[in-house]
């Protein structure tokens, strides 16, 4: 750790804060990917292909996958 002197424990080195930070991160990670996936699908449906609901459905599925991937990725980063 590159901290020579620290009176208060800086959160990035304190496992409690690091864990708490991690915990509040992952939920939004899932949500944001769903919003983006669904939103992209909806835009494709409405403005580009006029493809009914298929874009939205596929977008939500891919968004869910991307969200899980993001959550998985941030958990892995934390472990290393």
């Amino acid at each position: 750790m590159p901290i020579e002197r620290g009176c208060a424990m800086p959160p990035s080195t304190d496992p409690f804060y690091a864990g708490l930070g991690q915990a509040v991160r992952i939920g939004t990670e899932l949500l944001a990917a769903l919003i983006v996936g669904g939103g992209l699908g909806w835009v494709l449906d409405t403005y580009i292909f006029a493809s009914g609901q298929w874009g939205l459905v596929m977008g939500l599925v891919l968004g869910a996958a991307a969200g899980i991937r993001n959550a998985y990725r941030s958990a892995q980063r934390w472990q290393s």
Binding site: V24, T28, A32, V36, L62, A65, A66, N70
Partner: peptide, 22 residues
Amino acid sequence: IPIELISQLARPVSLAVRLFAN
């Protein structure tokens, strides 16, 4: 590629939504 594209585009959204929502 679509999954990675969405997961990339979700980054700014999750940044913005997390702070605002909390």
